[in-house]
Design a protein around this nucleic acid. Structure first.
Length: 827
RNA sequence: GCGAAAGUGGCGGAACUGGUAUACGCGCUAGACUUAGGAUCUAGUCCCGAGAGAUCGGGUUGGGGGUUCGAGUCCCCCCUUUCGCACCA
């Protein structure tokens, strides 16, 4: 590196090496003077090559980390791997590589990429969810939750491929068929494990209000996902089943007398009994089976037709005493509410559509004393047709919630129903019929049934020696060595559970493990957790807005209830960076950068050609980080040119004269830039920070060119430029800093502070407006009072010209900025 | 349909609490240095009109209205785009 041209390859290799050797980011969590906990999302080491779009997340985080470091915060910035998952198992089936080897290989590749981006992680805290030292604590957590009734088993449908005789993930089902063999997929009920997240629905909802450091967007998405709705459940007796009744949930109990039929989900538990003696039973069952096997996406789709069958059974509307038909239909979902609805066609568009289609009665509910029927609550179509109009038997029905509340009380008095809140949120299904995940630590014994694995027998390790065919179910269930075990209670031969856990279990508590990654005795250290939690800054993609972030909030509350963490919320501040897009030749559109769309840019080639610093600066400069940004191949060179100019400036510094007239001007620019860049960093506005630094570089370049600043001033400005630029372009700045003769690295320097006094000018430019229009600029003393300013303004010939003799009715002075003369008499 | 965010030059985008709209960069144009350059440097670059010229006048932040001395920014209506959710009873 003896020559003077900018050899980015040599510079970057040198500093990446040095940071690695110095282990530049390590923090002793026990002695951290200045707690600041940063978190990048827990990446999945997929086999796909990383592209520059992925880089945005990490580059942004690293810029922030370096900024914090220079501001005296020894931030904790760990990285680890969400290493379990489906792609590893697919790779094993397709390429015969063991999931573990495949995953470890990918981790290596990704770490190397991080190194080449110049990103500093605290690798002494590295964790990987596929290692027994990590996943044993998933198992431990599971056992604790089982103990508290937060983990339980129930029947739930899975996608089943009869061809491969195996369970498929939703993404493996293409157009209702198995992606591998093309056999139509059917729904099959299996007993599966769940976490009772619905018990925490209200707390998860309430907690969102306190999360001031989260984007509104994400909070709204979580609120909608939880989907709390208030209403009532109402019982409709079934005369044919004696004491049984159908319980429905409704948000509009006040319309119950308009209920002209009931609709049950085909999966509703009462259905088999209702059709027990019927002649067309077989026909109905076949139809139910067909609906059940309709892929969920299709069944829930907006445009899929409503289909239903009359069960030929009657139910009693408790309020009207009328007998109404009971139907089953595909548009009623078993998971929501009670899996049954009262259909009020006059007040619900879906019920109306169905009633029309099937020729069912429509009854409008209104009160005789209401002059106008509440049109908003009623389907418009009803108004145009003859329908039965009926007054409710209860005279409290008017507008609004209060009425509904009183109505529910009335229902409760009569014993016909009661208040109820339901959630869209369902319990978290954690069972996966897969090999590559955390084994669920329970054993089945003929005598004792399901027996939890005792804590001292953890971890239940995944066997390595397993065969991957993609057929005949879970590979784990074919491993004799794994399945065959002894009952922990009686020692009799028993079978292990072969379901493994959803990887969202792994990622819902990893931030706690970073604090004591090698602790063999505990999931994490509660003392350290209390000290470091919540995470101060979490950075990641919007794609995790709901599932991951909701599960992590849930598990944090569970751990809080266990007394292991000090707060219910894991992440105080959340930042979601936008995606990088690029024009795709395939589709002819600008789209999210991805391998399948063929519009990726490889960091390898870019780094080879222009360097990691160029990629970093461009990525930060491209636009506001929370928004999407379109990658432009040409614009990248702007960042490269900027860095080259900075590089060349070093050898131009000696050209500056010992003393110079406009010293103060450059000094003001320097301080203004410090202020702007610092402020930009605090707002995550990296694009404007880069712009400000380009401006300072331009100013310095001009000063050198025109010899208007002294040598010392130029050197000082250059040094500041290097410091401010360091978080974005760490390699080149460290190299130049060293060449400037400093022995201490830039990371160890403290972030420059601006001096208000240096920003002040003796004379300032003031904008002059006449009736709000810009007419002139005048120079006045910075200390001038209103009278003096006014005198200076009126002295301007241009102003006089535009006043054209009119009288000034009012003069508005914005100190330091402008004066507006208002004439406004005749106008 | 419901919810959220956003519309500024040829392009990506600046403009902190209302106060010089278009910073910075890309692209483009002209010139310089070059055997050459997709290298580098210099100058110019929102639109319309006037002027040889420095300059001068007018207009412009999706459209319309309002508040204000003053609106890209605040309020109301409309249009468009993007994202999220959805047979949720």
């Amino acid at each position: 590196m003896s020559n003077n041209s900018y050899d980015h390859k040599a510079v970057e290799a040198k500093w990446q090496d040095r940071w690695e050797k110095q282990r530049a980011a390590e923090v002793d969590v026990r002695h951290a003077r200045d707690k600041y906990y940063m978190l990048m999302m827990f990446p999945y080491p997929s086999g796909d090559r990383l592209h520059v779009g992925h880089g945005r997340n990490y580059i942004l985080g690293d810029a922030l980390y370096r900024f914090l470091r220079m501001n005296g915060k020894r931030a904790l910035n760990p990285m680890g791997w969400d290493a379990f998952g489906l792609p590893a198992e697919n790779a094993a089936i397709q390429r015969g590589v063991h999931p573990r080897d495949w995953t470890l290989g990918n981790i290596k590749v990704m770490k190397e990429q991080f190194r080449r981006w110049g990103i500093l992680y605290d690798w002494s805290k590295e964790v990987g969810s596929c290692f027994p030292e990590y996943y044993r604590w998933n198992q431990w957590l599971f056992l604790r939750m089982l103990e508290k009734g937060l983990a339980y088993k129930k029947m739930a449908p899975v996608n089943w491929c009869p061809g491969c005789r195996t369970v498929l993930a939703n993404e493996q089902v293409v157009d209702g068929a198995c992606e591998r063999c093309g056999t139509p997929v059917v729904q099959r009920d299996l007993e599966q494990w769940f976490f009772r997240i619905t018990d925490y629905a209200d707390r998860l909802l309430a907690g969102l209000d306190g999360l001031e450091g989260w984007p509104e967007k994400v909070k709204t998405m979580q609120r909608n996902w939880i989907g709390r709705s208030e209403g009532a459940e109402i019982h409709f007796p079934l005369p044919s089943l004696k004491k049984e009744s159908v319980t429905v949930f409704t948000t509009r109990p006040d319309t119950v007398h308009g209920a002209t039929f009931l609709v049950l989900a085909p999966e509703h538990p009462l259905v088999p009994r209702l059709i027990a003696g019927r002649s067309n039973r077989a026909e109905i069952e076949a139809w139910i089976e067909k609906v059940r096997n309709t892929p969920r996406i299709e069944r829930e789709g907006e445009n899929s037709p409503k289909e239903g069958l009359d069960l030929g059974v009657k139910a009693l509307n408790p309020v009207t005493g009328e007998e109404i038909p009971v139907w089953i239909a595909n548009y009623v979902l078993p998971e929501y509410g009670t899996g049954a609805i009262m259909a009020v066609p006059a007040h619900d568009t879906r019920d109306l559509a169905f009633a029309r289609q099937e020729g069912l009665a429509v009854r409008l509910v209104y009160h005789p004393e209401d002059r106008e029927v509440d049109a908003a609550t009623m389907t418009e179509a009803v108004l145009h047709e003859g329908v039965i109009r009926d007054a409710p038997p209860f005279d409290g029905l008017r507008d609004g919630k209060e009425t509904i509340g009183r109505f529910i009380e009335w229902l409760e008095e009569k014993g016909w129903g009661k208040r109820r809140v339901t959630y869209r949120l369902r319990d978290w299904l954690i069972s996966r019929q897969r090999y590559w995940g955390t084994p669920i630590p329970v054993v089945y014994c003929d005598k004792h049934g399901m027996v939890p694995v005792p804590e001292d027998q953890l971890p239940v390790e995944l066997p390595y020696d397993v065969e991957f065919t993609g057929r005949e179910g879970n590979p784990l269930s074919r491993s004799k060595a794994f399945v065959e075990t002894k009952c922990p209670k009686c020692g009799a031969p028993a079978r292990r559970e072969t379901d493994t856990m959803d990887t969202f279990v792994d990622s819902s508590w990893y931030y706690l493990r970073y604090l004591s990654p090698r602790d063999p005795n505990r999931m994490f250290d509660p003392e350290l957790a209390k000290k470091w939690m919540p995470v101060d800054q979490y950075i990641g993609g919007i794609e995790h807005a709901i599932l991951h972030l909701l599960y992590a909030r849930f598990i944090c509350r569970v751990l809080f209830d266990f007394g292991l963490v000090g707060g219910e919320e894991p992440f105080a501040n959340l930042f979601n960076q936008g995606m990088i897009t690029r024009f795709s030749d395939k589709s002819g559109r600008v789209e999210k950068m991805s391998k399948s769309r063929g519009n990726t840019v490889s960091p390898d080639e870019l780094i080879e050609e222009m360097g990691a610093d160029t990629e970093r600066v461009y990525t930060l400069f491209i636009g506001p980080p929370e928004k999407e940004a379109e990658w432009s191949d040409e614009a990248v060179s702007g960042a490269y040119r900027f860095l080259t100019r900075v590089w060349r400036m070093l050898e131009r510094l000696p050209e500056a004269p010992p003393t110079a007239p406009a010293d103060a001007e450059l000094e003001r620019d320097r301080h203004a830039t410090i202020q702007r860049v610092t402020h930009s960093f605090q707002r995550f506005s990296f694009n404007t920070a880069v712009a400000a630094l380009m401006e300072l570089s331009n100013s310095l370049s001009r000063a050198l060119e025109e010899k208007t600043a002294s040598r010392l001033r130029c050197e000082e400005t250059f040094d500041t430029l290097l410091q401010l630029l360091h978080p974005m372009a760490p390699h080149i700045t460290e190299e130049l800093w060293e060449r400037r003769g400093y022995t201490e690295g830039l990371l160890e320097t403290s972030w420059p502070e601006h001096d208000e006094a240096k920003l002040r000018r003796d004379r300032i430019q003031l904008v002059v407006q006449v009736d709000g229009k810009l007419r002139d600029r005048v120079e006045v003393d910075a200390t001038a009072d209103e009278r003096e300013v006014r005198a200076a303004v009126l002295a301007s010939p241009k102003v006089q010209e535009h006043l054209a003799g009119r009288e000034v009715a009012k003069a508005v002075l914005v100190p330091g900025r402008l004066m507006n003369l208002v004439t406004r008499k005749s106008a």
